[in-house]
Design a protein around this nucleic acid. Structure first.
Lengths: 345, 345
DNA sequence: TTGAAAGCGCTACCAT
DNA sequence: ATGGTAGCGCTTTCAA
């Protein structure tokens, strides 16, 4: 054709244009796109017309008409945490085979922002919503329940789940790591965490530390709270300095995150402290850095990708049940964690 | 009321329900939601009705009717790279004030996957599309151009941009780092990169290395290609072993990414090699780990967040011009990079 | 296997 | 400042 180079036609092609070109009705085009029963000859003609026009069906029209959207919502406290990024990746992998699109929101560790995002994103009538954590504003829960949309809370074990959940006990995991330190012979064990009340996972880990210290009769807790979430590498260095000022005879420290643990270890190097001989350092989360730094960092391993994958599967199952009018599953998946004993303890 | 606890009404409230309850027409409700001129009394009545019904406007109906969506698309090669996560964060921060939602796609470093995602996501008629890199399938570009949607390519300087772009020259940046190494007195400088042809940024950095080696008359290049993108910490350790087998007298190495550089340095530690005395190691990207590890890693600093922020602003400006029927800006923003000389070189 | 008509929930446009 | 009507582009439903 001589018009191949016209790139922005005044108006993009509609289904009616395809239908006219193929010499069929709109319905037949719609059926071809949906993969329904259409004779081979007709289908071919329609597909040719679609290709030659460069037709892309309009999603909002389809959604409005059918009542079914193609969105899945994922809300994370922070995009830069590789942990949550992995969870989003898992969710994405679980649902993209169904042709669903990922609507992503970053709450910046704030429940108010979460509520705002839920309100905004619910307007798109998503097939499912993945939340991070178990702490939400009452309004958030109400909106979600009212919408009747499948929800999965992740990274935690909610005592009163909105719908479904997949996570692990941050309390138990942190306590288990304290147990590991105690078994290694450490007795003056400290905890380095964030000062923010907004990071419930961090708070739970702190609680696990406190419970274990009490249960194992390890004396007064040594609790250092410093900095905001997301916890980064700089956190550990600053925190360890303050910790050692206050409790110089500490022999082991559990950090709320591997990133913090790494920062702490690097600061120990600078101060001439040997890890683990002078001070043992444990992390949480099994970040990549812990496997490759020297010394390698003992940590609590969880599987962020699997959390997302599982959440995606639960959401798909719920959405399917909802469509078929079947009773909805209401699962609370408790995932394993593992204590990885490495060189730093 | 006595029905407050009914959480999932058979059908969610529509605008007509709100209108009826407030005793006004649908149009007035629509105006209240759009923030248009409505008398204070009427507005109050409508807002009360909205609250008491828990009404959430349906986005697809709005989009279909107005022809304007509220989506912005972001396509990244990998979600787990903190670099791209930062860019997405910047984009998000730039556009969320306008109430836009982020539709995220992970291409997994594959142009075919990118083409597929573009096709899928374009069906939602996004306000703008952010792409990563300058290498795309012809079909991807055609679809994008045909849709007439504002596009920004990031992290690179495309020779033939689809629309707009914001990035930096990976070639120049890598060459500049080689220059830095040469200035420090190193003469047998190697490059560690990925073996994947899909990561164009990595390829450009390699090209910059080769150009600089030739320009500075530093002899035969020492090019080690290993592993797939995304490049992770494990990459560096493996690559440095192979590098030193092949060219044992290497005195400096530029790594395609800080993560690789970190892995390389940790492997040097294990082998008893002192960095930088026995071997200097430089990275690329200014990842957090480079600032906190020992030795701190010399690197090329770019600003991923700013790339995203700028991309968002460009997209908003284009979308605005498009709506107003004004000529669209067509900017190609070239961002700075910085050579950060730290302890590892 | 295919087509015609109705309508999804909202906004643009023109009235008043 | 407010309301009525038409219609966005598709899918559902029913009929042929």
């Amino acid at each position: 054709m001589s018009r191949d180079d016209i790139v922005t036609p005044s108006t993009p092609p509609r289904m009616a244009d395809v239908a006219k070109l193929a010499g069929v009705s709109k319905m037949t085009v719609s059926r071809v796109l949906a993969g329904r029963d259409v004779s081979a000859r007709t289908r071919q003609r329609v597909e040719d017309a679609i290709d030659s026009l460069g037709y892309l069906p309009d999603a909002s029209a389809g959604t409005l008409s059918s009542g079914r959207s193609e969105f899945i919502v994922a809300l994370v406290p922070s995009l830069i945490s590789s942990n949550f990024a992995d969870t989003v990746r898992g969710l994405n992998d679980a649902v993209r085979a169904q042709g669903l699109c990922l609507l992503l929101g970053d709450t910046n560790y704030q429940v108010e922002e979460e509520a705002l995002l839920v309100r905004t994103l619910l307007r798109h009538r998503p097939v499912g919503v993945m939340l991070t954590g178990s702490v939400h504003l009452p309004n958030t829960c109400k909106l979600l329940q009212q919408a009747g949309v499948p929800v999965v809370e992740t990274w935690d074990i909610p005592s009163e789940p909105i719908d479904q959940s997949v996570g692990f006990s941050n309390i138990d995991a942190a306590a288990a790591m304290v147990g590991h330190l105690q078994a290694r012979g450490y007795r003056r064990i400290a905890f380095i965490g964030g000062a923010s009340a907004l990071d419930n996972r961090g708070l739970q880990r702190r609680r696990g530390y406190l419970q274990a210290i009490a249960a194992l009769d390890l004396g007064e807790p040594r609790l250092l709270e410093h900095g905001d979430s997301p916890i980064t590498m700089s956190h550990g260095g600053e925190a360890i300095r303050r910790l050692l000022e206050r409790w110089p005879d500490t022999d082991a420290v559990l950090c709320v995150s591997d990133l913090s643990a790494f920062g702490a270890i690097m600061e120990c190097h600078r101060q001439g402290l040997k890890v683990p001989d002078d001070l043992a350092v444990a992390g949480f989360g099994d970040f990549e850095v812990s496997r490759y730094c020297t010394p390698t960092i003992s940590t609590v391993a969880v599987d962020p990708y699997r959390i997302g994958l599982r959440a995606g599967e639960m959401l798909l199952a719920s959405a399917w049940a909802l469509r078929e009018g079947l009773p909805r599953p209401r699962e609370t998946a408790r995932l394993d964690y593992q204590i990885l004993a490495r060189e730093s303890t």
